[in-house]
């Protein structure tokens, strides 16, 4: 893991103790899941058609939400970090509201805008005959709403930390701002974007409240893994543990794979 490994005298005690506590705090609940998992019935639980369906839907919608967040969120992060417009701090506070909003409230808010009776949704429904709630599109929208701020904050931080002199140099050499953004800024902050995207994807994958409120819960269309886990918990806690483990293993595996294939290369 460590690329910088010269003269490492060990971790100072005041850092080591809290760090170990932090690991215990974060990892023990996962260990609890693993210990309590009904390993004997694992096979029968996993072969149910609902599991594959929910898992596929989760992966597809979280990835789509991450894609949408990249397309919209990176430009937003640039505006927050680079533009000189007034009211940027207000804008920043506004776009990070989904971070503090209880997701269920976010789901209701989405209804009020995009629902059949919503401000925009009413028009979509009547003029274009498009209804968003209770569709996979609604899942992606709910997940994007909750997860995009994570990407925006990460990328904005990366942009602020990036050396602006490279951009200045590109500008002196005659590049316009768009070219500078594409050819200089983007490669410069690629690790930050990658980290933000991973965070965004992970948050979208675990999204529950906004999804079950705005998109509802229907197997195959809107029932993602967290929803399946929640409902399984109502009746069969063992099945819920198995489903949680599946989600856990798949997400950790994906993140590790990405880290090897993509993140480390970007960091270099």
């Amino acid at each position: 893991m460590g690329t910088v490994r010269r003269r490492e005298p060990g971790v100072p005690l005041p850092l080591l103790v809290p760090a170990v506590l932090a690991v215990a705090f974060l990892v023990l609940p996962l260990a609890g899941l693993v210990v309590r998992a009904p390993w004997g019935e694992l096979g029968s639980q996993l072969t149910g058609p609902a599991v594959g369906q929910a898992l596929r839907l989760s992966l597809v919608s979280a990835t789509a939400a991450t894609g949408l967040s990249l397309v919209l969120g990176v430009p937003l992060a640039w505006v927050l970090a680079r533009s000189r417009a007034r009211g940027r701090s207000v804008l920043r506070a506004l776009v990070t509201v989904p971070l503090v909003l209880p997701p269920v409230v976010g789901g209701v808010a989405l209804f009020l805008v995009l629902g059949r009776q919503g401000i925009v949704g009413r028009w979509l429904d009547q003029a274009l005959d498009v209804t968003i709630p209770f569709t996979t599109t609604a899942v992606v929208i709910a997940e994007t709403f909750v997860a995009m701020p994570f990407l925006v904050i990460s990328v904005e931080g990366a942009l602020r930390a990036a050396d602006a002199r490279f951009e200045d140099a590109a500008a002196t050499l005659g590049a316009d701002r768009w070219t500078t953004f594409r050819r200089v800024t983007l490669p410069l902050v690629a690790p930050g974007i990658a980290a933000g995207a991973v965070l965004c994807w992970a948050r979208a994958l675990g999204e529950f409240g906004a999804t079950i409120t705005f998109a509802g819960n229907f197997p195959g269309t809107t029932q993602t893994m967290p929803l399946a886990v929640y409902l399984a918990l109502q009746q069969d806690p063992d099945a819920a543990i198995v489903l949680s483990l599946v989600l856990l293993v798949v997400s950790v595996a994906t993140l590790l794979l990405l880290r090897d294939r993509w993140l480390t290369r970007a960091v270099r």
Binding site: F111, L112, T222, Y230
Partner: peptide, 20 residues
Amino acid sequence: APDTFEEDVRAALTKVELGE
């Protein structure tokens, strides 16, 4: 032919109240 299976009865009611 339901469009959603709600997690509790109040969630189902909310969707009626919202006209969704």
